[in-house]
Amino acid sequence: MSSNHMNLKLKIWRQKNIAAPGGLVDIDAPGISPDMSFLEMLDTVNERLQEKGEEPIAFDHDCREGICGMCSLVIDGRPHGKEDRTTTCQLHMRKYADGDTITIEPWRASAFPVIRDLVVDRGAFDRIMASGGFVSVRTGGAPDANAVPISKHEADASMDAAQCIGCGACVAACKNASAMLFVGAKVSQYAHLPQGQPERNKRALAMVAQMDKEGFGACTNLQECEAACPKGISVRVIAEMNRDFLRASLLGAE
């Protein structure tokens, strides 16, 4: 083992299933290379656990390149860990020092129940999307893509919002477990495009109603979500959604 390897102490949330109580468990993580990603560190820990006859720690992950939004983890009190604009899978262990203690917890929100260990159910996000996060166009019959010019500025604003990976870090970071940044990002993406206009009122009303129904908290504009967002989605999307929602509400729109 080369000399720059680190020995870490982990405090990890372990929970057998959705109904069982959970708790923080101390686990040693020796021989961690600074070149490992955070999840590779957990892989290494899992291999050791299994050798000792203990079940591996369950955590969500898939692409491991910061785009699928499946990985999560609140690391030392911060969603996706200490590096700005970086998902857990892209966080590398060189950010830590030998002897560090790292606390790892799941996303905390009543709308995101813990399924096991660090894995939570984010189905609420899908239900919000199904309530209005789309343009009602069926396959076929779309006009030529260049038929409606869209200013670069608006297209860029739309893309800024569309970058959301749906990981839920905004909810995890918010003291109220509010989903406003996630929902705002989708509302804003379409609000900046001509294709989004016909259903603009309806979309804002429906998605906010579903968001509330799922039990997410309210936004108190602390902007922790923006700071925790691995894609740097701006809270301007929240202001835009508020505007759309209030206008549509006052209009009595259907």
Binding site: V74, G77, T103, E105
Partner: peptide, 8 residues
């Protein structure tokens, strides 16, 4: 909405 607090 946030019934369980973070340990940290």
């Amino acid at each position: 909405a946030r019934p369980v607090a973070y340990a940290k």
